[in-house]
Design a protein around this nucleic acid. Structure first.
Lengths: 191, 191
DNA sequence: CCTACCGATCGGTAGG
DNA sequence: CCTACCGATCGGTAGG
C-alpha cells in the first residue's frame, strides 16, 4: 500500500523519464496525481527534492543488486553482475532513466555527490574485471580499460531499449557470451 | 568565416548539450551570442527549428562518416566504421550529444522522422556485422543481435566520456580488438 | 539588430 | 488538500 508520497516519487520518475526534468512542470505532476498544483507541496518541498530522491534511490538499487551477487569463479561473477544490473534497469526503467540521463540537473552539492557515487559504482565494475584478470580467468594481454568501458556502455545504454517485461537474465547472458569470446572467436590463446 | 546563423547553431548545440533543450532559454542563447533576445528571431524562426537543424546535421554527419569507409575485408571494415563513428563524436561532441540525447524533444512530425533515420543508421551497422558473418569472417555461432547492440551501445554512449582532443582512432581500435576476440580469448574456433 | 511588449506558464507560498 | 495568489521567466512578436 503505497503512500501518496511514494506515489508522487513514482509518478515523478515516470514523467522525468518521459519528458525530462525541465520538460516536466509541477502542474504536470499535479495532474498525474489528481491534485491541484499547490497541494503537491505537502508531499515534497520542491521539484528538485524529487530529483534528489529518485537519483539516490537509483544509485542504491544498482549498488544493492551488485552486493547481492554471490562470490564465485571470476568470469561467472561478471555474468551475474550483468544480470543484476540489467535486472534493475528492467525493474525500474523510469528510475534508471532518470539516474542515467537526468542526474545532471541536480543542484550542487548533490550533483557533485552523485558523480562521486556513480564513479564508485563504475569502480566496482573495474575491480570485477581486474580481479578476474589477476586470477587468470581473462586473457593476459587484455585491455582492461577498453573492456570496462565496453561493459559500462552496454549497461548504461540499456535504459534506451529495455522493455519492462524483458528477460534480462537471458539478455545479460548473451551480452556476456559475446564479450567473453568475441565476435571472431579464434583469438590468441592465453600464454 | 562563419555566418551569424551558423554561429547560432553552434552555440545552440553547445547549450542544448550542456543544459538540455528545455533547460536552455532563448535569453541564454541571446546572451551567448551577445544579442538581445528578440534579435535571435532574425537568425532562426524558433528554438525548435534550431533543434531540428542540429539533429539533422548530426544524422548527416554520422551517415557521411560511414559512407567514407572504404570497402575491404569484412572485419577490417568494422574497425574503420568504429573509427568513423567515434571521430564524428569527438569532432562534434555537442552536436553528437544533442543527436543522442535531446532528439526526443523534437515536435512531430520531425520526431518520428528522426527515429526512422536513426533506425536506418543502426540498420547499416547490423548489415556490416551480418555481411562479415556471411563472408565467414566471424564465428559461425555468433549472436549477431547481441553483437550489434554491444557495438551500438559503445557508439551511443561515447558522447558521455569523449574528450574533444581524444585519439579516437586508437580508442576505436582498442574497442574493436576487445570486441573481436573477447575478454577471455580462448573461444571455440569456428567450425 | 534593438526596444518594448504580449499572454502563458513557471516553481512556489499563504492561509485556510 | 484547496483557492488564490506571488514575482519571475518563458517563447515569441511588432515596429522600427
Amino acid at each position: 500500500m503505497a503512500t501518496r508520497r511514494e506515489e508522487l516519487v513514482t509518478v515523478a520518475s515516470r514523467l522525468f523519464a518521459e519528458r525530462g526534468y525541465h520538460g516536466t512542470s509541477m502542474a504536470d505532476l499535479a495532474e498525474a496525481m489528481g491534485l491541484q498544483k499547490g497541494s503537491l507541496y505537502s508531499l515534497t518541498e520542491s521539484k528538485q527534492e524529487l530529483l534528489v530522491v529518485i537519483t539516490r534511490e537509483g544509485a542504491a538499487s544498482f549498488h544493492a543488486a551488485l552486493d547481492a551477487v554471490p562470490d564465485g569463479e571470476p568470469p561467472e561473477r561478471i555474468r551475474l553482475a550483468l544480470r543484476a544490473h540489467l535486472g534493475v534497469v528492467a525493474g525500474q526503467v523510469s528510475a534508471a532513466t532518470v539516474f542515467t540521463r537526468e542526474w545532471r540537473f541536480l543542484d550542487e552539492p548533490e550533483r557533485t555527490a552523485f558523480r562521486a557515487e556513480r564513479r564508485r559504482y563504475e569502480e566496482r565494475w573495474r575491480e570485477l574485471l581486474q580481479d578476474a584478470a589477476e586470477r587468470g580467468a581473462l586473457r593476459s594481454d587484455l585491455d582492461i580499460e577498453a573492456a570496462v568501458l565496453l561493459v559500462l556502455s552496454a549497461a548504461n545504454w540499456a535504459y534506451t531499449w529495455m522493455r519492462p517485461g524483458a528477460n534480462t537474465d537471458e539478455l545479460a547472458d548473451r551480452f556476456f557470451a559475446t564479450l567473453l569470446d568475441g565476435v571472431r572467436g579464434y583469438a590468441t590463446r592465453p600464454s
